[in-house]
């Protein structure tokens, strides 16, 4: 059994446990590489059928190429897709043109997520976060409860071991199910390569630059790269020593921005 087999097996186990334990499961999908691995794993877990809706929180600042990919993938995988925009915040004029990126991220992602959760009464949200992305994510559980205010009590997390998880929530609460927690960026790429998972073209170098992580257009920077294949990306990652989300402005806007975002419900 390879390391990727182990990771895949664990993720599938978690997805099946989540689907069994909760009445209304939704899976977040950003069209990014981790999200697409998540879709792939769900297809495998449920024998080719994804038995819950896939949610895209659309900030209205998406790259056009990502929107194209969204339309293609919906068709290709047969997704039950929910696209949600925080229209209320947009109406108030919240946007990168007028507001700081931490606030925009909060309004157009976290608040939007809260809205979609309330609208559809999800009690479990499957997310594609990984421990290696950020030091606050390193402390996550596979099944991570959030209270009705969306808060994450990271100081007193429930114990989780031997494949047993927190699978019950109180009224208004939900659980974040995080099947990719143990994957690293390189694992994701190796798995995409092994399984031939379709991905947006923006991850691959064009004119000497590529995107390592994809977010909102105004705050996502591409990086210098010549990697046009997954093999080349992996080789590049082996020697790079900058962090994956370095190109994501909202994380670095101020000290502890990520921690603040996450305590308020950001993924």
């Amino acid at each position: 059994m390879t390391h990727l087999d182990e990771l895949e097996s664990q993720s599938i186990y978690l997805l099946r446990e989540a689907y069994h334990a909760f009445g209304k499961v939704g899976m977040l999908w950003s069209m990014g590489k981790d999200s697409n691995v998540l879709l792939w794993l769900a297809k495998k877990a449920f024998a080719g059928h994804i038995p819950f809706p896939v949610i895209h929180v659309d900030t209205t600042y998406e790259f056009p190429e990502m929107l194209e990919f969204r339309a293609w993938a919906k068709q290709h995988y047969g997704l039950e897709l929910i696209v949600h925009v925080n229209e209320e915040a947009r109406a108030r004029g919240i946007g990168y043109e007028t507001t700081d990126p931490v606030t925009v991220t909060h309004e157009l992602k976290s608040v939007a997520l809260q809205q979609v959760l309330g609208l559809h009464k999800f009690d479990a949200l499957v997310t594609g976060i990984r421990r290696d992305e950020d030091s606050t994510r390193a402390k996550e559980r596979y099944f991570s409860p959030r209270n009705a205010e969306f808060e994450w009590d990271y100081k007193d997390q429930p114990p989780e071991f031997w494949n047993h998880f927190t699978t019950e929530v109180g009224p208004g609460e939900h659980v974040r199910v995080q099947p990719l927690l143990d994957w690293t960026e390189i694992d994701i790429w190796r798995y995409c390569d092994q399984e031939k998972i379709p991905l947006p073209g923006m991850y691959f170098a064009r004119n000497g630059r590529r995107f390592r992580s994809l977010g909102c257009m105004p705050i996502t920077k591409d990086v210098p790269s010549t990697a046009t294949t997954i093999d080349e990306i992996i080789e590049e990652l082996k020697v790079t020593r900058t962090s994956e989300r370095a190109g994501r402005a909202q994380d670095h806007h101020e000290r502890n921005a990520m921690q603040k975002l996450r305590a308020k419900g950001f993924m």
Binding site: P158, P159, F161, W162, H164, T166, V169, G170
Partner: peptide, 10 residues
């Protein structure tokens, strides 16, 4: 091996 639950917690 097994776990015991109290409330919603292990």
């Amino acid at each position: 091996r097994f776990v015991l639950m109290r409330g919603r917690r292990i």
